[in-house]
Simulated assay, not measured.
Amino acid sequence: MPALKAGDSFPSDVVFQYIPWTEESGEITSCGIPIPYNASKEWANKKVVLFAVPGAFTPTCSVSHVPGYIKNLPNLREKGVDVVAVVAFNDPFVMSAWGKANQVRGDDILFLTDPDAKFSKSIGWADEASGRTSRYAIVIDHGKVTYAGLETERGSLKKSGADAVLASL
């Protein structure tokens, strides 16, 4: 499949993994049980911002990328966004811990995992050398892609940062 672009339908078979946040497992040292997250089904009738990072706990991702979305959650909600999700190739335990480290509670931002960067590879947006997820953002509105931006410069958030996504809404 070529890279997603505005006007495309979101694929019908996208399943990530994640660990749902719960109060009883809200501490960073607590582990939950990974479950499948059928994004195609869950997002079919919602407005969604999906942004991808090369890896949890990495410099640009932790210092700028995720914090930008946390800060802009109210603005994204004002624009009608129902779901904000971040995805990386890391396992669900690391992604869960990263959400907790960023003090994200509940489902404010879903911390999803794309094992082996399967989804990112399917849309041509995985790093060839490392096999990791590239840095990108996609807006899906009721199953249709309305924005898709892939970063081509290392550490850049010009296309995938919260400000760029907000400008596209």
Rank of each mutant, 00 (worst) to 15 (best):
P115S: 14
F89K: 10
A129N: 15
Y136A: 00
G124M: 06
V83D: 12
A137S: 07
T113P: 07
S130L: 06
S130I: 00
A117L: 09
A126M: 03
V104N: 03
P92G: 08
W125L: 02
S120W: 06
G124N: 05
Y136P: 01
L110A: 06
V139E: 01
N90K: 07
V94G: 08
P115W: 09
F93G: 07
K100L: 02
S122P: 08
R135A: 03
S122C: 10
G124H: 07
Y136N: 00
A97K: 14
V84C: 05
V94C: 14
G131Y: 10
G124R: 08
V84Y: 11
D116I: 03
A117E: 04
A88W: 09
W98S: 00
D127S: 04
W98Q: 00
T113A: 15
L110F: 12
V86M: 15
G106T: 07
N90M: 12
L110K: 13
V86C: 15
V83F: 13
D116Q: 14
R132D: 06
M95L: 14
A126P: 02
A126I: 00
A85E: 05
V81A: 03
F111G: 01
T113D: 10
F89P: 05
D108G: 07
I109Q: 06
K100G: 02
S122Q: 11
G99M: 02
A129S: 14
I109W: 13
S130D: 04
K118F: 10
V83E: 12
V87N: 08
V86K: 08
N90Q: 13
G80Y: 07
F93S: 09
N90C: 06
V139Q: 02
